[in-house]
């Protein structure tokens, strides 16, 4: 345990030198050159590239959707209060319904992401790890 913790911190305890900066400590395979080669091999493997491409696109799309929903709501609050005051029941206003929808959307989006990440992305990650021999 102590060993592990020192190794981790040892990534660059005294600021970067060529040896300490190149690979993350725990990925080190003896000497920096090997670790660097491992890194480069993973970086250029098709599985890794697919993982990064699909997950990055997915994560940013989801973030964009969340931000758009939320800012859309805030902009309505700030600039179009009349829209939110429209009645959808006898008393209930559109604003309250939309507010609850935003809350549920936040929950739903996290659910969709977790579903995808624990399935497809984890599968891809396993493949990358296998190919890297870890």
């Amino acid at each position: 345990m102590a060993q592990q913790s020192t190794a981790f911190r040892g990534a660059n305890p005294a600021g970067p030198t060529a040896a300490s900066v190149a690979p993350p400590a725990d990925a080190r395979d003896g000497d920096p050159a090997t670790a660097d080669a491992v890194t480069q091999r993973i970086l250029h493997s098709p599985s890794f590239q697919e993982l990064v491409r699909t997950r990055t696109r997915f994560a940013w799309t989801m973030s964009g959707i969340m931000l758009a929903i939320y800012l859309g709501f805030i902009f309505l609050v700030a600039f179009a209060q009349g829209v939110l005051a429209v009645k959808v029941g006898t008393t209930t206003s559109l604003g309250i319904v939309l507010g609850v929808v935003v809350i549920l959307a936040a929950f739903a989006l996290t659910g969709i992401y977790v579903q995808r990440a624990n399935g497809r992305f984890d599968e891809l990650t396993r493949r990358v790890r296998q190919e890297a021999g870890r």
Partner: peptide
């Protein structure tokens, strides 16, 4: 590069 590989895959974490 090395940080990126680890942050995306957890290899070496």
């Amino acid at each position: 590069d090395a940080q990126f590989v680890r942050s995306e895959t957890g290899i070496g974490a």
